[in-house]
């Protein structure tokens, strides 16, 4: 038995209240600001009683920031990254755990060397790669002086340049961020805990590898997949540096980047009410995902540590 400490318990709840208020204050303040007309929001200090301009500001932010298009882009990017990462890594982990082949260890090491390398440390070369996916082929081509070789055969000047750009495209937003070893690592860990008997039984019943994957491995991985869906969706939605680099066309950029246009600059009228309304719209989807899938979110976050 642990002793009763009524005073300490009271303080526990008081501190928790204070903590929750501190953690919530930026958003409470943003919600209040989003309901005020411009005269009120620019008054010093801003009144802390909500006004009635919430929908007006919301629609102003929606139009001014072109949020419809950008939210759609964000959604495509976040779901693309989520689906891509989970598919690629699940298949990869299946291959590494359930097959014995010569290349296995090499594949394993190749993938796991990249475990912690975020896109932020390799931005320039990755950008160049995305700007021309055939860059490596082109280098090999140039290195072998194939242009002049071809030219010699054809008897006239030949200039072959290979170019395939991912800039300003959904592919460019998604593919470079699909490359991640964390999910593969998680699935590997999970597959290793799956009882051997399942695989043996499946083999005895004459199931092929892919049938085993579809009928047994996929259903028992459901909670792991749900957990990763939450984490990766939030990760994809909140990306900043990569979409900033890869998109120049405002129609192709994501909502988090587009929000920048709503922040009042020094010489503008201080439309902070509209900026806050926009911020609320853009942060709503990932917050909803986290809150609605809370159980899986906590699992997805804590599991990698084990």
């Amino acid at each position: 038995m642990v002793e009763k400490t009524p005073i300490l318990d009271a303080f526990t709840y008081i501190f928790l209240m204070v903590g929750i208020i501190i953690v919530g204050s930026p958003i409470i303040y943003a919600i209040i600001a989003a309901t005020l007309p411009i005269e009120d929001v620019s008054r010093v200090p801003m009144p802390l009683i909500p006004g009635d301009q919430f929908w007006v500001n919301m629609s102003a932010a929606w139009d001014k920031g072109d949020l419809g298009t950008q939210l759609f882009n964000s959604f495509i990017m976040a779901s693309g990254i989520t689906i891509g990462k989970i598919t690629v890594s699940m298949l990869g982990a299946f291959s590494i755990v359930y097959f014995d082949y010569r290349f296995r260890t090499v594949a394993f090491v190749t993938v796991f060397c990249t475990l912690m390398l975020p896109v932020e440390v390799r931005i320039l070369p990755t950008y160049e790669m995305a700007a021309n996916l055939f860059g490596p082929l082109q280098s090999v081509w140039d290195l072998l002086h194939l242009n002049s070789v071809l030219g010699w055969f054809a008897n006239h000047e030949v200039d072959v340049s290979l170019n395939f750009s991912l800039l300003d495209s959904y592919g460019g937003l998604i593919f470079p961020l699909v490359a991640s070893a964390t999910c593969t690592f998680l699935f590997r860990q999970f597959f290793l805990t799956v009882p051997e008997e399942l695989c043996e039984a499946a083999k005895m019943d004459g199931a092929s590898a892919m049938t085993f994957f579809r009928k047994i491995l996929l259903p028992i991985s459901k909670t792991n997949i749900a957990a990763l869906v939450v984490i990766e969706f939030v990760y994809g939605w909140n990306q900043y540096l990569w979409p900033l680099l890869i998109t120049t066309n405002p129609k192709m950029t994501t909502a988090v980047i587009g929000l920048q246009n709503l922040i009042p600059q020094a010489d503008d009228l201080p439309f902070w009410n509209v900026a806050m309304a926009g911020a609320l719209i853009v942060m709503a989807p990932p917050i909803l995902v986290v809150l609605l899938m809370q159980r899986w979110f906590v699992k997805g976050l804590v599991d990698p540590e084990k």
Binding site: P26, I27, Y240, V256, L259, Q260, P286, I287
Partner: peptide, 14 residues
């Protein structure tokens, strides 16, 4: 737990 879902860029704006 919900602030986890807020993008760093938006947290900056707030």
């Amino acid at each position: 737990i919900w602030p986890y879902a807020v993008a760093p860029a938006i947290s900056g704006i707030l």
